[in-house]
Nucleic acid binder design. Sequence first.
RNA 1: GCCCCGUUCGUCUAGCGGCCCAGGACGCUGGCCUCUCACGCCGGAAGCACGGGUUCGAAUCCCGUACGGGGUACCA
Length: 487
Amino acid sequence: MNNVRVRFCPSPTGSPHVGFARTALYNWAFARHHGGTFVFRIEDTDKERSTEESYDAMLGAMRWLGLDWDEGPEVGGPHGPYRQSERGDLYRDVLERLAASSYTYDCFCTTEEVDARRKASGSKVMGYDGFCRDLDPAQRAAWEAEGRKPVVRFRMPDGSVTWTDLVRGDITFETQFVPDFALCRANGDPLYTLVNPVDDALMGITHVLRGEDLLSSTPRQIPLHQALVDLGIGTVVPEFGHLPFVMGEGNKKLSKRDPESHLFLYRDQGFLPEGLLNYLALLGWSIAADRDIFTLEEMVEAFDIKDVNPNPARFDLKKAEAINTAHMRLLPVEEITDRALPFLKAAGVVSDPVGDADAELLEQAMPLVAERINKLVEAVDMLGFLFVADADFAVDAADADKLLNDDGRAVVRRALLKLETLTEWSTAAIQDALQAELVEAMGIKPRNAFGPVRVAVTGRRVSPPLFESMELLGRERSLARLQSVLV
RNA sequence: GCCCCGUUCGUCUAGCGGCCCAGGACGCUGGCCUCUCACGCCGGAAGCACGGGUUCGAAUCCCGUACGGGGUACCA
């Protein structure tokens, strides 16, 4: 395919959610796969609900995910502006040209009047009935005299509308079930029904990949696109592909109300964008029968919209975490260190900026934790004991209850006595000494021998490897901590 | 109500008429490894919604039914 142009066009209402990311990803991957153009457009025609804060969040989300756009906000492009709130003149002009060619007509009916007529006629079809299509001039004058303002409606053609959906195949709607629809409010404000197809036409969009919720608006958009082509406003009717929903708990669409749906929740927990994206890609698509870990580049190479599954997918946190873990293991330690740094700073584990001593300690410690954490934020709990000021060090109460009982403290006492005699403070020396003194001399199992020592030194039952941790902590601080649980 | 979409292990999926008495992954589960945790390794349970066709042969094609979802706005 040549000159592919796709767009992603969220409404800036609220916080970006995972469905947003999945749709953005598929559009982006489609564009990149075909060497096409990825357009980012903001559909902020709903003045009531759109906010600047949400707009910033949309851009922030795309940047965090690494889905770069070729045309759009802050990047510009030949078809700007890319915020619909700044394109009012364009829409007014299109509306005039549509009306001049009778593709549209003014409608003065109220919702109540329409409902009453439909009920009276016993119609199975709801929605607008076309009453004002050929309005009697006298009636029109009367309504205008009483101050009624009309909305502009698109005249749906007779017959049917058929398209070959990129993910679902042929779909046909009889237009008798698709009522004439409003293109702008009575006050003149353009509606989504107008601006979405108009901008797609103006921006030369060739493929529309969007959520299944918009499938039923497609039979209205295709005739409108044809009208735009007829008027020379557009050049082609784009192809459409409707992506399956991302569902939440139970069997309902993941809504913005659902906390699991918020994209930034994952960012703030230390998910890697490539990990989340990999997982999201799997919700409706797979790269191969026996493989589910891949990079964005590999996805771009393999992505084909025709392979997208049409049925809805349930978001599964456990699997998302597992996929993320796999990506963590793919990263070199230095990279994990860089990415974990903001979390460590935020938690106060290290200062901002990081001091030289802390930086050096971090470089030595990260290899121990990088391979055992699944999300970046976990580095905070894993490393805290190494960086905390001695005065602030505290042993986890629950872990102490469990392991630092009389038996545990006896073990710690033996360990302390033995370690005080060590002349070399190294991982190997510490391990040899404790192995001999606790496991062999005392005759207790390794986990019972090292557990109490671990809690005393690191403050927790879960920690980086014990002997390495003690080496990094240093002789004096290690011995002091052993001592402190004995008093 | 009407229109449209969908239905393979608990979950995400592979499968596009014979390779499938259905493969992979997460989860669950038994075991191994092991200084904790995490990782890793070996094994197990678990699925083609139902009913009719078409065909020598159907998870795959067709038609019904059931169930789920979306739409039916001067929201997007």
